[in-house]
Design a binder for these strands. Structure first.
Lengths: 146, 146
DNA sequence: GTATCTGCAAACCCTTTGCAATAAG
DNA sequence: CTTATTGCAAAGGGTTTGCAGATAC
């Protein structure tokens, strides 16, 4: 049993919610997702195996976020994207403005800075998101003036 | 003449676009905005003075971004927000998860880290956005368990 | 058995767009 | 005069929701 399945079942039980096959199918599908996804992609992947409606996906996502399995990611595409975060190093996104490729990078200094900035302002810190925008090596070659 | 008006006029001329009273009104209204805003807020503020349609606001925003006067801000409210950035220190956002208040903070180390991460990945870096989420002092008192 | 969950379709909301009239250069 | 821009209203696209039937507990 993957730990995330257990985490989700515990979360569901603690909340007094019900463990349905749709919710399990969504969690299992997300387990196989290594990079970013959106609702449509998840819907079409689930269609092949479990057939979960989009409404149920939209209603399950807040639960997955609260359970700590996924995070919202803003990708400037006009709609929300998500990433599988449970059990992974916290990372930030280096995004190419031209081809939109995303490189995930980790830097331990960021967590340190997060804590410092939060405590300097008397906040209890719960996490951070850093996005760096630029032009990737391959787009630099194709658009040397960009 | 505020420098931003001049920057915008130069941008418009360089692009071969036309300087209309609607575009000027939008720039002037944004000049008076110190914190974050969205299209609706801008629309209602302009209604009192200039009466610019939402369509024109939506069509002008990409120009303001390209001219370097404003930036997009993601606020988890389901729609886009913007901030007035021209001539200001780059800053990041410390946001309270409960009351949604936003504190702007600057930290010179972030720019350093941005450059390092970008160059380590052979990216040409163009900027970064850091958001720290947590609980502000006042919400800590009102919801001690949060 | 009872309350929650699902799927469907409609509603919602923000944003974009087609078009005829207007205005800038 | 020519072409870009505006305002309106309709269309678009992602997300949410009301409801009746299904299902977990």
């Amino acid at each position: 049993m993957e730990p995330e399945i257990q985490v989700f079942r515990d979360f569901i039980r603690k909340r007094g919610l019900r463990g349905t096959k749709e919710r399990e199918a969504i969690v299992r599908e997300i387990l196989t997702t290594q990079d970013h996804f959106d609702v449509d992609e998840l819907y079409f992947r689930l269609k092949k195996t479990a057939g979960v409606s989009k409404a149920s996906i939209y209603r399950t996502i807040p639960l997955l976020i609260e359970a700590g399995l996924i995070n919202e990611v803003y990708l400037e595409n006009g709609h929300m994207h998500y990433e599988h975060v449970y059990g992974r190093d916290h990372h930030c996104h280096l995004r190419c403005r031209i081809c939109r490729v995303i490189v995930e990078v980790t830097d331990p200094r960021l967590t340190q800075i997060e804590r410092e900035i939060a405590s300097r302002n008397n906040f209890v810190s719960e996490g951070h998101k850093l996005e760096i925008v630029g032009v990737c090596p391959s787009c630099q070659n194709q658009h040397p003036m960009a």
